[in-house]
């Protein structure tokens, strides 16, 4: 509960923050709190990912972006009421959507009845590894993970092509990059 309160407080602070640098640092803190919360929910795999990607790598990438573009926020040209209303309506719809969901940890929830027990029961005999998540991701759902890895590869190549292509052109022109219009 304390963690959730801190998460909400951090989110509100980020939304109110005018300095982009401070906002990026706070998103790092938000991810770190999120990692702690995942650990409390007995999901250490997700917590690892959240701590390393959310709090670590993506914060650093955002800071690198700020170093390239500048960290001042342009003043808002519109009143905040319309975005606030949109957020409130969407949030209310999401909360309404969770009303008929089973309680957290309910043993009779659909997710606990199928297919979860079959994996938990069969993993020890069929795969022989204690970490059921690894068995499901790597073996039972190996196709999906292969597709996932391919998506990461494709996305990484695309980002590299986008970022590097421009860099090389700038170097080829032999002119300083401040003459270029940023996109």
């Amino acid at each position: 509960m304390l963690l959730l309160t801190l998460l909400a407080a951090t989110a509100v602070t980020i939304a109110r923050m005018r300095s982009l640098l401070a906002a990026v640092m706070l998103t790092g803190i938000y991810s770190f709190l999120g990692a702690g919360w995942m650990l409390l929910l007995d999901a250490p795999d997700v917590a690892f990912t959240e701590a390393a990607v959310g709090a670590g790598v993506s914060t650093v990438l955002m800071l690198a972006t700020l170093a390239l573009t500048g960290s001042d926020m342009k003043p808002r040209g519109h009143s905040p009421w319309l975005p606030l209303a949109a957020v409130l309506v969407t949030g209310a719809a999401l909360v309404y959507g969770t009303m008929d969901m089973p309680a957290f940890g309910d043993p009779n929830a659909p997710i606990q009845l199928y297919p979860s027990p079959s994996y938990v029961d069969k993993t020890e005999a069929e795969i022989g590894v204690p970490n059921v998540i690894t068995a499901v991701l790597g073996s039972y759902r190996g196709y999906d993970t292969l597709g996932e890895t391919t998506v990461i590869f494709t996305a990484g190549i695309a980002v590299l092509l986008l970022l590097r292509g421009r860099h090389r052109r700038v170097r080829g022109d032999d002119t300083p990059s401040d003459g270029e219009t940023p996109r």
């Binding site: 790598v57 170093a67 390239l68 790597g138 990461i152 980002v159 401040d178």
Partner: peptide, 28 residues
């Protein structure tokens, strides 16, 4: 084997993307 492949791809991909960001010059 497959976890090793995933780890190798993710580690080098993340590092490459950071290098690509950090290697750029400021645009304005």
């Amino acid at each position: 084997a497959v976890e090793f492949g995933v780890g190798m791809a993710v580690a080098s991909g993340m590092t490459l993307i950071y290098f690509a960001f950090a290697g750029r010059e400021r645009v304005r």
